[in-house]
Nucleic acid binder design. Sequence first.
DNA 1: CGGCCGACCTGCGGGC
DNA 2: TGCCCGCAGGTCGGCC
Length: 271
Amino acid sequence: MPELPEVEVTRRALLRPLCGSRVLDVDMAKALRWPLQCTPQSLAGQRIEDIGRRGKYLLLGLEQGQLIVHLGMSGSLRWHGAGTAPPRGPHEHFRLRTDRGELRLNDPRRFGAVLWHADARTPHPLLGRLGPEPLDPGFEGQQLWRAVHARRAAIKPLLLDQAVVAGVGNIYACEALFRAGIDPRTPGRKLSLRRCQQLLDALRATLEQALCAGGSTLRDFCSSDGAQGHFQQQAMVYGRAGQPCRRCAAPIAQMPQAQRSTYFCRHCQRR
DNA sequence: CGGCCGACCTGCGGGC
DNA sequence: TGCCCGCAGGTCGGCC
């Protein structure tokens, strides 16, 4: 589920209920990718001051540090106002109770993570390796070109590299390349500055469109208020193998790249 | 250093 | 109908 738009939609939905609330307690029922890195009791009593996002990471700013949340492949967060929380489901592995209600992380595959980072002055190592934010207006095509122009790897796996651009996953990499008319197999070093600028524009337009749609919904994604995103109904290529291209009607192709499925149109996307 | 590959998990849909 | 295989929105770490 969780690429930049889904995480951002979740962040916006959580701002109102969570900001300013005070933590009662925290528990991790089943281990996620890593241990929490602190004793759950140490979080009790702290106020949640802000909610940020970096790439696909959601950042809960507490008084004495930061709770870093990653949704992995199958994670979703839900908010339950005070007294409205149903019994815990089998995949609700993390729970944060506050004086206003509780936040739960549902993650069947447990690729997600919740980490405590006490030293807020220096960024957590996981965040330190992230590339620029695609929606940051200060990020220019030239910067993308610099990150890519010396690389032999194909542009599609390069877009998935979080050090090149933060927050892009399989759906939006495929969609942005379609929008830019670029063949996903094109080596990074074959892309001109001009095409990198076009690619960044296309990526931004794709992400903005997904934000407006409330993100994508595949099997288990639900924004925290329970509403479903509907971007996948607008997808031009992702998950559409064999179906006609919405632009030229040629069948959409599917191929593996770096052990992930790439969807593209052989006619509309060129090297 | 760059790039490939396995590992980590569970669930679901398709094919036989 | 039922079982088995392959695949799924991610990414870290080990290896060449």
